[in-house]
């Protein structure tokens, strides 16, 4: 490298040398598996058996598979439960930490801590907190409510997992909102205040319209992530998905069906295709809702 090379034309191979490692990895481990998932969905491939083309058989089987409907229901409920909370709560949190009062950087960082922790750590912390004999139940008993079976009831389990997802995501979206809030012109707030608008009114008429595109972004990001939920439910409900598997999500079903030596790769791929389709649909839905609002 130290030798001074004379001015010369750039060799045509070097750009490809630069891009090659990235393209190779992306091609081999993202794009190729994506295409092969699409193809496998129409075969009866298993982990150790190559399998044959079976047309739409996997998708027909899906329609009659109760577990698939349970998974689709839970993943959809997850979006419905988690997304509104993750669009609104971090915005309120961002408003709370926006003003530069003493110690505020400490609070901002502290609120971000759950984002840094692994989902496994977070899941296990909450499994212990929500345990029949855990902290939350001791507190509930102390104030006279009595103990609640957060981790034994099918619906409470799903709700608890949603709460954990929201808890872990708050800090992340708070930072996104903070960046957006910094761009809200202060004159708007002052004008509204002069006109006699209270804090709530100013929030709805000034803040919300100003960060609306960020809210759409957060909605899109969080809904896609929520539909693909795996770890929280896997850790809190267990690998088999809670009582009678009723808390299984779609990605848990993919993992359960497709792995192991007897894994049904073809069938799991068909479920994955459903995950792709719904994910894309969710994105389009959020973006379209955005456009309609604008007009």
């Amino acid at each position: 490298m130290s030798s001074v090379t004379p001015v010369r034309r750039q060799l045509p191979v070097s750009p490809w040398l630069f891009a090659a490692p990235g393209l190779l990895i992306t091609g081999a481990f993202i794009l190729y598996p994506f295409v092969s998932t699409l193809i496998n969905a129409f075969t009866d491939r298993r982990t150790l058996i190559p399998g044959e083309f079976v047309g739409l058989a996997n998708f027909r089987e899906l329609l009659n598979d109760d577990m698939f409907w349970v998974g689709l229901r839970n993943s959809t409920l997850y979006v419905v439960g988690v997304v509104p909370a993750l669009v609104i709560l971090p915005l309120l949190l961002a408003l709370l930490v926006q003003k530069n009062i003493p110690g505020i950087t400490f609070f901002r960082s502290a609120f971000y801590t759950p984002v840094v922790a692994s989902i496994v750590v977070v899941g296990l912390i909450w499994v212990w907190l929500l345990d029949e004999r855990g902290l939350v139940n001791s507190l509930l008993e102390t104030i006279g409510v009595g103990r609640v079976g957060f981790l034994s009831d099918q619906w409470l389990l799903l709700l608890s997992a949603m709460a954990v997802t929201v808890w872990k995501g708050l800090g992340y979206y708070m930072i996104i909102y903070l960046a957006a809030l910094a761009n809200v012109p202060r004159e708007l707030h002052e004008a509204a205040a002069v006109d006699g608008a209270g804090a709530v009114r100013r929030f709805l008429t000034v803040t919300v319209p100003a960060v609306r595109s960020t809210m759409v972004l957060v909605g899109a990001l969080s809904s896609v992530a929520a539909f693909k939920v795996f770890s929280e439910v896997y850790l809190m409900a267990g690998p088999s998905g809670g009582p009678a598997g009723e808390d299984t999500t779609l990605v848990m079903l993919v993992q359960r069906t497709g792995t192991g030596l007897t894994g049904r790769v073809g069938y799991a791929s068909a479920i994955s295709v459903v995950v792709f389709v719904v994910t894309v649909a969710l994105m389009l839905l959020v973006l379209r809702a955005d456009r309609r609002d604008e007009s």
Partner: peptide, 21 residues
Amino acid sequence: LAFILAMLVPVEGIIIAQFTT
């Protein structure tokens, strides 16, 4: 374009194919 497409692929949906690869 290849990198943009790869970014949009939901990883959770391709884990089985990644595993077979």
